[in-house]
Simulated assay, not measured.
Amino acid sequence: MSLTTIIFDLDDTLYPRGTGPLQEVGRRIHQWLIEQMGLEPDEAKVVRRRYAERYGTTLGGLVAEHHVDVDEYLLFVHDIPVERYVQPNPDLAAMLERLPLRKVVYTNATAEYSQRVMQALGIATHFDRIVGIEDVDFRNKPYRDAFERALHLFGGIRGTQAIMVEDMARNLVSAKALGLKTILVNGGPESHIDFVVDHVLQVEQVVDNLLRPDGSTSHTT
C-alpha cells in the first residue's frame, strides 16, 4: 500500500533534544508532584521515573494509580512561554514544504501546547492535524490502542500508509507492529526501528528513498 502520511512526534523530534521547552515541562511536572501530592523532591524524582518506566509518562501513572484532575494537570505543566525556548527554523519549514506526503503530529503533550510550539518554530502551516493526549482519552504512547486511536483520528489511515518519526525508541514498538515505517531521531538501531537519523532534517532523504519505485534505501542516515 502506498505511503500517504508522515506522522511526527513533537518534543525533542521537531527541535533538537535538550534545546526546547520539554525540560521546562519536566520541571513543572516535578513541581506539580511536590505541590499537589505532597512529595519531597527526591520522592518526586523516584515517582516520575517509576511512572515513566511502567506507564510511559508521569500522567499515565497518575491516571492509573490516582484520582487526579487531568485537565488541571495538563494545563499546569504546559503553561510555559514556548517562545523562550524555540525560534523559527526556516530550514525545517523548507524541508517540510518539500515532503510530498500529508504531515501530521501525534504527541503525548496537549494539542494546544503543540500548536504554540509549532507556531514558534514557524512550521504550523505545514501540518494538517495535531493529535494530542486529550484526543486519545489520555492514553499515551507507547500503548498500541493509543496509536490505533490516533490513526483513526488521522482519517482512518492504515499503518502501512504512514511513517512515524520519533525520538524515543520505545514509542515506536507499537507503530512498527501496526505496519508503520519507523524513523528514530537521535538514537541507536533496534529491531523495531527501520531507519535512524541524527537530525530531523535527515528525514527528507529517508522519505525520498522510500518513495523511489524500487524502495531501495539503507537503514541509517
Rank of each mutant, 00 (worst) to 15 (best):
M168P: 10
K45L: 13
R50Q: 12
W32Q: 08
A44T: 10
H30L: 05
E112T: 14
D11S: 06
P142L: 00
V165Y: 11
D12M: 00
V185D: 03
G20L: 00
D198W: 02
G156W: 06
H219A: 03
E190F: 02
I193E: 03
R158H: 13
I123D: 02
E24D: 05
E24M: 06
H66P: 12
R129W: 05
Q36I: 03
P142Y: 00
P189N: 00
N171E: 09
T160K: 12
T125G: 10
V197K: 08
I130Y: 00
G60C: 04
I183F: 01
R149G: 05
V207N: 14
R50K: 12
L178I: 10
R50M: 03
L178Q: 09
R17S: 07
D12Y: 01
I6W: 00
Y106Q: 04
V197F: 02
G38E: 03
T110H: 04
P213T: 01
I80G: 12
P41L: 00
Q161V: 06
V173C: 01
R98L: 02
I130V: 15
V77P: 11
F154M: 05
V82H: 07
H152W: 07
L153K: 09
F195N: 11
N186E: 11
P90H: 05
G155D: 04
A162S: 15
G18D: 02
L153Y: 11
L14I: 11
G215F: 06
V196T: 15
